[in-house]
C-alpha cells in the first residue's frame, strides 16, 4: 500500500501510523453531553467503501493526514494535512 503524503510524495505504508476515522478531528466541547462523546470516541460509521481516515507520517515528515480511501478496494483517492482538512 502506498500513501501520497502531501509533503513527501508517495511513500510505503510502512512509514505511516493509522489512527482511525477522521471523525476524531471533530472533538466535542466538554459539555457536549454523553451521546456526543460516545459517538466521538467509540461509535464508528465504519463504511464498506469510501472513507476519510487519519494517518500519521511517523517515519517521514511527522504530518498527520486525512486520507480518503476505499475500505473495500483499498484505492486511495488523496491525502491532505489534518490541520487543513475539513472537519
Amino acid at each position: 500500500m502506498r500513501i501520497p503524503c502531501p509533503i513527501c510524495g508517495e511513500r510505503d505504508r510502512r512509514e505511516f501510523y493509522y489512527k482511525g476515522a477522521a471523525v476524531a478531528l471533530d472533538r466535542p466541547g466538554p459539555d457536549a453531553g454523553e451521546a456526543a462523546w460516545d459517538a466521538y470516541v467509540y461509535l464508528r460509521e465504519n463504511p464498506a467503501g469510501r472513507t476519510r481516515e487519519l494517518w500519521y507520517h511517523e517515519g517521514g515528515c511527522g504530518a498527520w493526514l486525512v486520507v480518503t480511501r476505499d475500505t473495500v478496494s483499498h484505492e486511495i483517492f488523496g491525502a491532505e494535512l489534518a490541520g487543513e482538512a475539513d472537519v
Binding site: 498527520w64 489534518a82 490541520g83
Partner: peptide
C-alpha cells in the same frame, strides 16, 4: 505521536 496529533489536528 499524541502531541503531534493534538497540535496538528485539534489545536493548530
Amino acid at each position: 505521536r499524541h502531541l503531534e496529533w493534538v497540535h496538528q489536528a485539534l489545536r493548530p
